[in-house]
């Protein structure tokens, strides 16, 4: 591969990382919030897919993609609230509920989304950040979606809020020790319910990005595991919202590898590169988790790390 090819690939991967990472970022931040409160929601995959469908449908019917994003978030709240409400019941396992909601959400999205596979809905517009460059490929790479910028801001705010606000302390206490939270007069179930619902909102918005910006259409194969990879990403990021952003970029770059190579004509092994994000998630989990010691920063009440 010559230098031109390499720089093209690197640029395409950077562009891809920015584009592909946004849904990872939103789902990861949502999951991070939920897990900080001591619960795990594996159903975000279903929330993501349903959010993608809802956003596309609303954008098509009303002509407003941002309304679509908002509605996608609201549907996410519904799924999150359902998860939160069911988990409150005695003897119900949050992982199993997550799996059920993943299947239920995906099924509902396919059911209602059948009619929206063909039509073309208005998409979200990107923001040009690369106008300083004369190179059109640089310009294209730096055309970012406002949601990406919102995601970064959100990561910073969440990071700050977890450390410095009373609300952040309440969520962290609930996640670290339910008895301690109880002793402080915190309504543990309510905090977790709200954290799961808010996490669902973010996952729904992440889905809206998928259908309204990149790849930018609604198909049944739109999300294949991003919602689940985001759960692994949160563990990798050690429940730190800022690290979630870095990890999302890394995952985005891995996901962009296949299309980037395709852009310079290497299409052999396309499916192999398709598997790259899953493989990378697995390898990262193997490298970053040790059975001998507990994870730094892990909420003490989390069933997945116990």
């Amino acid at each position: 591969m010559d230098d031109v090819g390499l720089s093209t690939v690197l640029l395409a991967m950077l562009a891809g990382a920015i584009r592909v990472s946004t849904p990872f970022l939103f789902v990861a931040l949502g999951e991070c919030l939920t897990e900080k409160s001591g619960r795990i929601n594996l159903g975000l995959e279903g929330t993501l897919v349903f959010g993608a469908m809802a956003a596309y449908a609303v954008s098509y019917e009303t002509g407003s993609p941002w309304l679509g994003v908002f509605v996608a978030g609201l549907t996410g709240v519904c799924f999150g609230a359902l998860h939160g409400a069911i988990c409150k019941l005695k003897g119900v396992n949050d992982i199993a509920i997550g799996i059920a909601l993943m299947l239920f959400g995906t099924g509902l999205a396919f059911f209602f989304g059948k009619g929206y596979i063909q039509p073309v809905a208005p998409r979200l517009e990107g923001v040009q950040l690369g106008s300083w460059s004369t190179d059109p490929s640089v310009q294209k790479a730096l055309e970012v979606n406002p949601l990406f910028l919102i995601g970064i801001a959100l990561a910073v705010v969440m990071w700050w809020a977890f450390r410095n606000t009373r609300l952040g302390l309440v969520v962290r206490t609930t996640g670290d020790s339910a008895p301690a939270a109880l002793a402080l007069g915190i309504n543990v179930d309510l905090v977790r319910f709200l954290a799961t619902a808010a996490g669902g909102f973010l996952a729904g918005v992440g889905g809206a990005f998928l259908s309204l910006y990149y790849p930018g259409s609604w198909t049944e194969g739109l999300s294949s595991g991003q919602g689940l990879m985001a759960v692994a990403l949160v563990i990798f990021a050690r429940w730190n919202p800022l690290a979630c952003f870095g990890a999302a970029l890394l995952f985005g770059a891995a996901g962009a590898l296949g299309p980037a190579l395709q852009s310079i004509g290497i299409s052999r092994g396309y499916h192999f590169f398709n598997a790259a994000p899953y493989l990378m998630t697995l390898v990262i989990m193997i490298l970053s988790i040790s059975p001998k010691r507990s994870l730094r920063g892990a909420p003490g009440e989390l069933s997945i790390t116990k």
Partner: peptide, 22 residues
């Protein structure tokens, strides 16, 4: 009805079943 109808029914059964564990 779309072919995903069966998926919706299965998903609903799964959720209700887990609720019934309580």
């Amino acid at each position: 009805l779309p072919d995903a109808t069966v998926l919706v029914l299965q998903g609903l059964m799964f959720v209700v079943l887990l609720v019934s564990e309580t």
